[in-house]
């Protein structure tokens, strides 16, 4: 469904991605793990078209994404919950959710809204509150809910569990699983490697802008190098 071939991305003179290959199949959860500064966020921003790769190719459902602007990539079905949530602070919760549906132009609006309120009842309670006044965990729920409004085919999640209480972390992971079971393909970036690998069908280990390892979630969980470097065992 999504295929990155030898993608290089840089910031001015810093080469953040040095030729990475990633393939995500339809219906699966893939995860991307790696230490701080490995290039995970850069990878997701490149897929969404916010950053332009220097070279290499990204295709989605067989179609190259080169020269397609970010909002049209969303229209093709790739949505992202970016690092740091980026809830619109001075838009209400409901307006934030409406903005998530901007590209979808109202398709399935009410059904999606109900689904999101069912998933995160707190958002319904807070719907007229400004996004910036929500707690961190609530903002994360809002960010995920907002992305779901666009009827994504592929959802990119950048550290959805960051800064959340353990109980919220497991709730978020459970939610990711549910979203996936409804047919949404997921590419998950996580520091919480163990939980992410358990959940994922396949995983990639990113180090210094290159893919060091890839395999099924199960394989990576039992890999000695992964255990040492990312699972703290």
């Amino acid at each position: 469904m999504l295929k990155l071939t030898s993608v290089h991305t840089s910031y001015d003179h810093i080469k953040a991605l040095k030729g990475i290959d990633i393939e995500v199949d339809k219906g699966e959860i893939a995860c991307l793990i790696g230490s701080n500064g490995a290039g995970k966020t850069t990878t997701l921003l490149t897929i969404s078209g916010i950053l332009k790769p220097d070279s290499g190719e990204i295709t989605f459902e067989g179609e190259p994404l080169k020269n397609i602007s970010p909002h049209n990539i969303v229209n093709k079905g790739i949505c992202q919950v970016p690092e740091g949530r980026r809830v619109f602070p001075r838009l209400t919760v409901l307006e934030n959710i409406e903005m998530g549906a901007f590209g979808a132009k109202g398709k399935n609006f009410h059904r999606n809204l109900e689904k999101i309120f069912l998933l995160f009842p707190i958002l319904k309670e807070r719907k007229n509150q400004m996004g910036g006044t929500l707690s961190g965990g609530e903002q994360q729920m809002l960010a995920i809910g907002r992305a779901l409004m666009a009827n994504p085919k592929l959802l990119l999640l950048d550290e959805p569990s960051l800064g959340l209480a353990p109980i919220m972390v497991s709730k978020i992971f459970k939610t990711i699983k549910e979203i996936n079971e409804e047919g949404v393909t997921i590419l998950l970036v996580e520091q919480n490697a163990k939980a992410a690998l358990r959940l994922s069908h396949c995983g990639y280990v990113l180090e210094n802008g290159t893919i060091k390892l890839h395999g099924s979630g199960e394989e990576l969980l039992h890999n000695e190098d992964v255990k040492k470097a990312y699972l703290g065992e």
Partner: peptide
């Protein structure tokens, strides 16, 4: 308003 608050995020929701 969304674009004024965060241009990158606005693009990421399809604006």
């Amino acid at each position: 308003r969304a674009t004024a608050q965060d241009k990158t995020m606005a693009a990421l929701v399809g604006i």
